[in-house]
Every structure is written in C-alpha cells, then in structure tokens.
Design a protein around this nucleic acid. Structure first.
Length: 420
DNA sequence: TCTGGGGTCCTAGGACCC
DNA sequence: TCTGGGGTCCTAGGACCC
C-alpha cells in the first residue's frame, strides 16, 4: 500500500528568524513582504494576538505591534532558501521519492511503509528535522496527496503528526472540514460547490454527479474529488526545469523617468538570467511590464507591457537587458508615477536544445562571461559584479528596515560564540 | 463565393497554489 | 506617506491546414 506524507514547516519565515535568535522563541514574530509592505508570516503567538490576516499593510499594524511587543522582520529570502535546503536534505533521507512542493513544504512517497508504524515514522521525521535544522514541522500521512494535506492541517492539534488510516475516522474528520479549505479548491470552485449544497469535504466526496463536477470544476476538480475518496490521481512529481521564470517588484519609492526604469529592468534581467543559467537553459522570448500604483485612486493609471523574441535562445544577461530596454522604448509613457515593474522569460528550453541561427549576430553568446559572473557572485556575495546598466541611484530599490543578518551565507554575519 | 469535417498549434486568461 | 512575488495547469477560441 502506498502512502503520501506531507511535511510542512510551521510559520516557516518566522521559524527561520528564530533559529539564530533564541531570545525571540516564545515571543510573537511577524515577517514582512518586500518593501516592508505587508505582513506575510506569523507565529502562533502572533496569531493568538489577532494578527494573521494575509497581506495586511504594515502601516495599519504598527500600533498593535508596538503594544504587544511583537518582533518584526523584513523578509530575508537568502536565509529562508538556505534553511529550506537543509530541511529538504533531511527529508531526502526518509524516502527515495521526494517532491519539493514549495520553500516550506514537501511530499514524501511512502510506498510499502505501512508495515511500519507510520505514526512513529512521522514523529521521527519531525524530531530529526527539528534537531538538525531548528525548524519545527507538521507531518500529515494519508493515501492521497489531498488527504495528506488535510491530515497535515489537523496535525497542528495532534503534537505535529497525523496519520489517516481508518476510513470511518477519516469520514468523521471530513464532515467538519469546510470544502473551501481543501487543497485545490479555491474561491471560484468553492462558490460553485456551495450552490450545489456542498459545504464540507465529506459532502464533496459523496456527491454523485461526477459529470457535473467535471463540467463545473474541470479535470482538476474531479481529481480532487477522487483523491478525497482515497483514489490517488496526483503522483509525486520530480523536480523539473522551470518553464517560465522572471523577476518583478514594487519599487521602494515611485519612479518617473525612463532612465530609472531602465536600471530597474536591468536588475530584473540580471536576476532572471542567473536563474536561467542555474538550470542551464535559454529563453526565446522576454516580456516587460511597467505599472503605476493601483492603490492610488487619484493618480492616472497605466499598465504597459510588450515582448521581444530572440532568433536564438539566450541566457546572456547583457542581451536580455538590451532587449528589455528596447521593449521599454515602445511602452514607456512619460507623466506617470510608476510603482512596479518586471521581466518575464518565456519559451525556455535546455541549452542543449538551443536552435542556433546562421544569420543571428548573437549566435556566439558569451556563455563563459555569464558563468564567471555567477561564480564570482556565488563566492563573494550577490551583486559583487554586475552590469553598469543596473545603476547606482536606485531610488526603486527595495526597502528593508528590519532585515536580519545573512547568518548562513556571509562571512561577516556568521555568529560568534564566546566560551567561558 | 459558397459548402463540411477533422485536425494542430498557439495564446490569453482563469484558477489555483505557496 | 506606507498595500508581495513567483509559479503551474487547464481551457476556450482563433488561425491555419487538408
């Protein structure tokens, strides 16, 4: 019998901050999004104080944060990525078949493991991850991915581990599990299901008219229904190369000029190209967008977007920057207050499948330049070397007033321990 | 010019996820 | 004053072909 485990890190970003700051354990912690814009992660202590609404603007929370002595951090993605890798490497020791679903979640295939005590196995996973990384996790184990998600959610009340084995017990749980909280059922689908009188996961599981479900929720919704019934439709998916990638951000402060946007786009291209090279791929097309502040009702609004195709695939930062600037020339309109922009790379293929073009002047892309830049930045820290097009003025740079040190990847930030 | 049936490929946009 | 970023999958429909 095959089982699926879902391991999910508790309040992951907050837990990462706590690993190197023992004094804030037990204290409420909140982590902010880019530009310290809004709150995106909360510990259970913070939730108990009434925080926890996803993406609530930081400025609205300031007074309450001060009142309750909440520890606040800007997001520190380098730290979170690093700790995520450590967690995943521990999990890899528990199964040969691991799917890293997100920075803080992974599915484990447990094929033939039911001859062991799955509850004990779950506890062992939990205690090992905590011991070796300092990150607390919850473990849910069931016969399908959708059910393991539900088990995981309930594990929070069960000392961190929940195993679904007994069918009657599962039905009891599904009867009090709202259909809108099922993995794969979002707002649109749950509204449709509610209109059919389906309120709980159990209602959905037992609903007989499968053709209607297929029609209303498409194939994806039908698979969720079967997964609730214990019929596995969603296999573990091995990591694959990204099919699209990109980089976009809200600006630290508003920008008005084309030259500032050129700098920001150069920065986005630099980040995106590094991602491409990291998976040894090239892209054939690039999309740029720029937009004004949609929250400001009083200012004129504009959203500009445009694309450019490349004759041969590329991961050359300089070529991408040049392309993004050409698109910008087409879409830029002066007189607007720009607040956000981004670059998306499409039609990505492995470098080995790149189609060269005899008449393309770029066919001799300097791959080695990119590789050397990546190596230098890896060894000496991000942005040690970059294109001058990224500029130095950078009013658009992200604001991060509460950023923790790079404990795991900058020599100057490594903790020192004094003995005696 | 009109008429039919069958097929592929591509793109935009919706829905969902963390 | 201050409002996140990065993905995937699916479907409908247009363009094109025989």
């Amino acid at each position: 019998m095959k089982y699926f485990g879902l391991v999910d890190c508790n309040s992951f970003y907050c837990s990462c901050e706590r690993v190197f700051r023992p004094e804030i354990r037990g204290r409420p912690v909140i982590v902010l999004s880019n530009n310290d814009g809004c709150a995106i992660a909360f510990t259970k202590e913070a939730k108990a104080l009434g925080f926890g609404e996803m993406c609530e603007p930081f400025y609205k929370l300031k007074d309450r944060i001060k009142k309750h002595n909440v520890a606040v951090f800007s997001s520190n993605y380098t730290l979170y990525d690093n700790l995520s890798r450590r967690v995943m490497s521990i999990l890899n020791g528990f199964t040969p078949c691991l799917e890293i679903y997100s920075v803080d979640e992974a599915f484990l295939e447990l094929d033939g493991f039911d001859k062991y005590d799955l509850l004990e196995y779950g506890k062992k996973i939990r205690s090992d991850v905590l011991q070796f990384t300092g990150i607390p996790v919850g473990v849910g184990i069931a016969k399908t991915k959708v059910l393991s998600k539900i088990a995981n959610k309930l594990s929070k009340k069960q000392h961190g581990v929940m195993v679904f084995k007994d069918d009657e017990e599962i039905d009891q749980i599904l009867k009090s599990f709202p259909v809108k909280d099922i993995w794969g059922i979002g707002y649109a689908s749950s509204t449709k299901l509610n209109m059919l009188g389906i309120k709980t996961a159990y209602d959905f599981k037992m609903y007989k008219d499968e053709q209607l479900i297929q029609k209303l929720l498409t194939k994806a919704g039908r698979q969720v229904q079967d997964e609730l019934r214990g019929i596995s439709c969603l296999p573990i998916e091995e990591a694959e190369d990204k099919k699209n990638t990109g980089n976009s951000r809200s600006f630290g402060s508003s920008v008005y000029t084309k030259s500032e946007l050129r700098e920001a786009l150069a920065d986005f291209c630099t980040n995106s190209a590094a991602k491409l090279r990291a998976q040894d791929s090239v892209c054939f097309s690039l999309t740029v967008f720029i937009q004004t502040n949609s929250f400001n009702d009083n200012a004129p609004q504009y959203y500009g977007t445009g694309s450019q195709n490349f004759i041969s695939g590329t991961s050359d930062t300089l070529r991408l920057i040049k392309g993004s600037h050409q698109v910008l020339d087409n879409i830029f309109k002066s007189g607007y207050e720009y607040k956000k922009g981004g670059v998306l790379l499409n039609h990505i293929v492995p470098r080995t499948e790149n189609q060269m073009d005899l008449f393309d002047e770029h066919s001799d892309d300097n791959e080695k330049l990119g590789q050397v830049v990546d190596l230098i930045n890896k060894r000496y820290g991000a942005k040690t070397i970059q294109s001058a097009a990224c500029g130095s003025n950078q009013a658009w740079r992200t604001i991060a007033n509460f950023r923790s040190p790079k404990y795991t990847n900058a020599w100057k930030d490594i903790l020192r321990i004094k003995l005696g």
